[in-house]
């Protein structure tokens, strides 16, 4: 797996398309893997289920929606942080909600950041650009995996 991969956990196909477009506009060229619910996200991260065969290694960044089918984003976060192998992977919550309790819970469970999806597309591009400059270029990520 390319170590610069971004894992996008997003169930809404419109949001997926818009996020990918915003990334493109924001000049982020990292490979992006999209999964559509919490179970798939964990399958990918733990290289199991449909992703049993993938080459080992954690993505550089996980963009995690909170409202997800099957397994919610907060549960995904909890499971990831409990895992000895990919427990330190960078996770940014990227979601519609700005519920104070969601924000508090996300940080409690070890999110590295919390970003509200902007409605205005230009703002979205700005946000992805910020993610790109800070989390992908400035920040030194943890050494994840064996």
């Amino acid at each position: 797996m390319n170590p610069n991969t971004i894992l996008l956990v997003e169930d809404n196909p419109d949001d997926e398309l818009l996020t990918l477009r915003a990334f493109e506009r924001g000049g982020i060229a990292n490979p992006i893997v999209v999964v559509r619910d919490g179970i798939e996200a964990l399958d990918y991260l733990f290289a199991r289920g449909a992703f049993a065969g993938r080459t080992a290694g954690a993505p550089l960044l996980v963009l995690l929606d909170l409202k997800l089918p099957r397994l919610g984003g907060l549960e995904v976060l909890r499971a990831v942080r409990a895992d000895p192998v990919c427990g330190t992977v960078l996770v940014l919550v990227l979601t519609s909600s700005r519920d104070d309790s969601d924000i508090a819970r996300a940080y409690e469970l070890g999110a590295n950041g919390y970003v509200q999806k902007p409605v205005e597309f230009d703002d979205f591009v700005r946000v992805t650009r910020a993610i790109g400059t800070y989390w992908l270029m400035t920040n030194v990520p943890p050494q994840v995996g064996p």
Binding site: D14, D15, L18, S96, D99, K117, V119, F121, D122, F124
Partner: peptide, 21 residues
């Protein structure tokens, strides 16, 4: 009111985003 307002944002994002696209 809170959850409705949240759920209303997602389709709005599509409307705003795709009309701009």
């Amino acid at each position: 009111a809170y959850s409705v307002s949240h759920d209303l944002r997602a389709p709005l994002r599509s409307i705003a985003g795709f009309s701009q696209a």
